[in-house]
Design a protein around this nucleic acid. Sequence first.
DNA 1: ATTGTTATGATAATCATTATCATTTGACAG
DNA 2: CTGTCAAATGATAATGATTATCATAACAAT
Lengths: 145, 145
Amino acid sequence: MEQRIDRIKKQLHSQSYKLTPQREATVRVLLEHEDDHLSAEEVYMLVKEKYPEIGLATVYRTLELLTELKVVDKINFGDGVSRYDLRQEGADHFHHHLVCLECGAVDEIQEDLLGDVEKVVEKRWNFEIKDHRLTFHGICYRCRT
Amino acid sequence: MEQRIDRIKKQLHSQSYKLTPQREATVRVLLEHEDDHLSAEEVYMLVKEKYPEIGLATVYRTLELLTELKVVDKINFGDGVSRYDLRQEGADHFHHHLVCLECGAVDEIQEDLLGDVEKVVEKRWNFEIKDHRLTFHGICYRCRT
DNA sequence: ATTGTTATGATAATCATTATCATTTGACAG
DNA sequence: CTGTCAAATGATAATGATTATCATAACAAT
C-alpha cells in the first residue's frame, strides 16, 4: 500500500504535480476499493471519511488527473455515471469486465484474452492498437441456478 | 431500404407499438447514416429536415424504443454523449469498433472475432454471455504515415 | 519576507437526458 | 359516422452529472 502510494507520488512529481493531502486521501480510497468500480460521487463520500473538508470538485479534478496519468481508467457501463478503476501496476493492457444483467455485479478478468485478436486487427485493419475496452454482458456464476 | 423499414414495422407491431410518421422518419435517418454513430442531438437535427415539427423528446423516446427492440445499440465512446448504432440485420453479435485517437474516426468491424474468447469466458468464469462490447483505441490506417 | 504558481472549496453554469402534462392522433365499439 | 380511450407527441420544466469560475489558501523559490 505505502509503496504503491509512493510510486504514484513519484509519477505525479515527474510531471510536476504534487501529492497533496486531498489527492493522497483520494488515492487511498481507490486502493482500498480496488475491486469496486466507484463513481465520482461514491469516491467523494468515502474520501470525506478521511478528509471531511474536501470538496466534490477536487475529487473530480483528482480523478481526471489520475486518468491522465493512467493510474486509473475511466469507464462507463451505461448507467449514467463514469466509474473509476485502478489499473493493475505494470499491466500493459486494461482488464476486462463481466457485467451481470441480473444482479448488476461487475467482475474483472485480469488475464489478457485478446492477444490473438489484436494481432488480427493490427494486420487486417492496419490499425495500431494503443488500448482496448472489452465488456461482456450476461449472467454471472452467482445468478446461474 | 423499404424492406428493412417494413420489417422494423412488423417488429414494432409484434409488441403493439406503432410506426408513427415520427418514428419512421427517425428510422430512415438511421438507415441513411448506417456507417455513422450519431448522437441523439445529431439524429434530431437530421430528422428535422424530413419532419420539422418533431420534438427532441420524441427522438429520445424513439431511440430508447429502438434500443429496447434491439434495432439499434446505444454505445458510449467516452465523450459525454450516447451514440446510436444500427444493428446488422440478423447479426447475432454486436460489431466492434476502432476509435482513432488521432482523428476521432470510428470504424466498424463486422466480423465476429470473439468466438474463441467467449468460449473461454463461459467455461472458466461460468458466465453466460448475452452480449459484448469491444472497442480498440489507437491509430487508424489513415493517420498512420 | 515576497512573489508567483498551483491547488482547493464553494458555488454557479452547462449540457445531456428524463419527467411532466396538456393536446393530438388513430384504432375500435357501438 | 361519432364517441371513447389508450398511445404518442411536443413544449417545457426538472434532474443529475460534470465542468467552469473565482476568491482564497498552500507552498515552493527567489
